[in-house]
Design a protein around this nucleic acid. Structure first.
Lengths: 249, 249
DNA sequence: CGGCCCTTTGACGGACGTCAAATAGCGTGG
DNA sequence: CCACGCTATTTGACGTCCGTCAAAGGGCCG
């Protein structure tokens, strides 16, 4: 429940324990798999019988253009499902790759579908998760279409911090940060060179510190100001717009 | 069914006819409403009891930043639902406005939910629609993050043409095109001035013609080439990447 | 030790934004 | 019917943010 797509994840865990109790009929098969860093988890336009749930490690979902340009759509953290689209469309359009070593639990598509369709409440949770994902995708579009480089990078860092915090993976504003600069670039629609410049500036200004794949937010207020420069109150995700002022006070 | 979100739209029509047959219990209330051009259809962060289905006209869904920047997330055409998010989250995060005069059918959120949860097949259709919307949002992210101005504009035109064609609203490569240049700019992450330059170039090159709010594609091949410059085959949406070559041959 | 990838930095270029002015279109009201 | 005010479009000049290219250094691993 604390996880980002926790509702649906919880749903799937329920499925599993349920089938443990009553294991004679349509057991929901699942197995754990380990994928080394930089390896593919699922390929676009590939018919797959499975859907996977990230158990540990970081992964990324991206779309690549034939000429080499690519856009990372989201980073996947433990508890995230790698592409709900697999559940319905026979093929998914995005490429999922492991950033660090990843372990994930694999479910048979058809079995998950069968269980979901027998439980309207779970289908409802699925729909909610999909709507939440859509909202994230919309925010990404705003970032890419209408924000400057430093805003995009600051927001990426803050969004990751928040998602990791919900998983209990942040201590003293410090968290693991395995991203390469070209991955930050592909997530923010920039180039690796420009990301390097921006991160350098943030670090020289003592806003953040990156060392040995760990990131520390030294000046959360300033980082928030950069992330949400256009509003007075700074960056407070998941706050109704009308309330941000109250939160500052 | 021919409509973009036709599955779910059809679902809602089914709901209605069904309740006509059996009208003593939980009738799905709906009413038709007319919204003049430039007026709001739904406001972000506003609790609404309703969800609306566009019956005629064009609308747009956008997110506005406090400093005036805005990103249009999608244009809504007849048959589109204005924000499925209304069905689950109590509030939607995007602003929906009429571009032309719009008529839409309004449903009570709770009644639609009640009916959906009684029919797993309809919930499944809803999930499929949501996944399709997500795919569109992902494509938008790629466009905004990784494509140049002319590519973005060419793709916008071709995507609209295709969606209108599915509705039988295109004749001889000509269709109604009520968009202002600042709306194209806000949809593509550009400025109105630059959109004007690009559209001027397209028109001087006899690729398209825009006259009195109607657009004609004069050179579909060239427009497709611009829209998908990075692949050899030009623009063929909804084709598995591996098959585009075959379609050219 | 020698590749390979990543990062950093500088110089330069280009795509796109900003500003401004001129014109056209369109609806409103006298 | 014309006057007017607003919005949209077009075009030019100029500025800037970010991309490209290149070189150098560092870390990692065989």
């Amino acid at each position: 429940m604390a996880y980002e797509l926790g509702l649906c994840t919880a749903g799937k865990k329920k499925i599993m324990s349920e089938t443990d109790d009553n294991s004679d009929r349509s057991v929901c098969w699942s197995s754990v798999q380990t994928i080394p860093a930089r390896h593919r988890i699922s390929r676009p336009n590939e018919r797959s019988e499975f859907m996977s749930l990230i158990c540990s490690g970081w992964a990324m979902s991206s779309i690549a253009l034939p000429d080499g340009r690519r856009q990372i759509l989201s980073f996947l953290l433990p508890g995230d499902v790698a592409s709900f689209a697999d559940l319905f469309g026979p093929v998914s359009s995005s490429l999922v790759e492991a950033i660090t070593d990843v372990t994930c639990r694999i479910f048979r598509r058809e079995e998950v579908r069968a269980i979901l369709f027998g439980r309207p409440d779970l289908l409802g949770k699925l729909a909610e998760s999909l709507i939440e994902e859509r909202k994230q995708a919309d925010e990404l579009a705003v970032d890419l279409g209408r924000r400057t480089a430093d805003e995009r990078i600051a927001r990426l860092i803050l969004k990751l911090r928040e998602r990791l915090a919900r998983r209990g993976m942040v201590r003293d504003h410090t968290f693991e940060f395995p991203l390469r600069q070209w991955q930050i670039a592909d997530a923010t629609g920039l180039t690796a060179v420009h990301v390097s410049r921006m991160l350098g500036e943030f670090q020289r200004a003592n806003v953040i510190e990156i060392k040995e794949r760990w990131l520390t937010i030294l000046d959360p207020v300033e980082l928030g100001r950069v992330a949400d420069r256009c509003s007075i109150s700074g960056y407070f995700p998941n706050q109704p717009a009308g309330l941000t002022k109250a939160n500052v006070a």
